[in-house]
Amino acid sequence: MWDALQFEFMRNALLAGILVSISCGIIGSLVVANRIVFLSGGIAHAAFGGIGLAFYLGFSPVLGAGLFSVAVSLIMGAVTLKSKHRADTIIGVLWAVGMALGIIFIDLTPGYNVDAMSYLFGSILSVSMADIWFVVGLDGIIFLIILAFYREFLAMSYDEEFAFVVGVPVKSLYFLLLCMTALSIVMIIKVVGLILVIALLTIPPYIAEKYTGSLWKMMVLSSLLGILFTIVGLWLSYSYDFTSGATIILVAGAAFFLTQITRSLRGHTLQADRR
């Protein structure tokens, strides 16, 4: 594996994978705890609209995806608060419409845009230094926000109603969480592609939740698991010449099933989990 590190693109890929896994673990834990996994999937796919728009107008696709996904996340958040019982349907519609918009914009863009496909399945091997600095900045911002509002995020995630009653500004925190989720998703798209975002965002926290007793420990363990999955996935994809994004997700998926099986062998049945 070490010989792979002589290539700059491999070093960048590894570094990007590790950095993205950190914010992914923190935000993923909150996404799982607040049950906004479907909404996050919607943001990830709708982000393709922003990527298409960026191609069409000729600016940075990361910027396009960033602006678009933040806007979509705010709309989805407002819909979720306003009409709870049909929120999933509306999220599904935005999910598909965003994606379709992106495809049409790319159709309208002259020339053959093979690069657009890399956003569907990830392009961790083409990460630039600029991308890495962007992820460092994002990790820093997320870290500071969580540090500042940890107690409030914990209260909101566990019992939103009580948090509201004692005066925690749950609505603002919810929208803040959605913005952070949207920006993290843009980063994760670079690593595994928008189709696979959900797996990297949710598998590490899901496993971590079973082995930790507090939210911050869950965040730390999720980040570590994400780093592990990315490194192992990259190494396997390099050794066997597989697509890197898909390999990372399969490693995460294997860990997911392994923990499920070992837990059920140890007697943690689904029933006991639900209690």
Binding site: R151, G167, T212
Partner: peptide, 28 residues
């Protein structure tokens, strides 16, 4: 009996009662 699998301790739940939205930064 909601959220019983949430990773949160008894004390952390009780400390939620000490939040009031006016001191947003920092720890308990």
């Amino acid at each position: 009996d909601f959220n019983v699998n949430f990773p949160i301790s008894v004390r952390e739940i009780v400390l939620m009662g000490r939040l009031d939205g006016s001191r947003l930064w920092g720890w308990h």
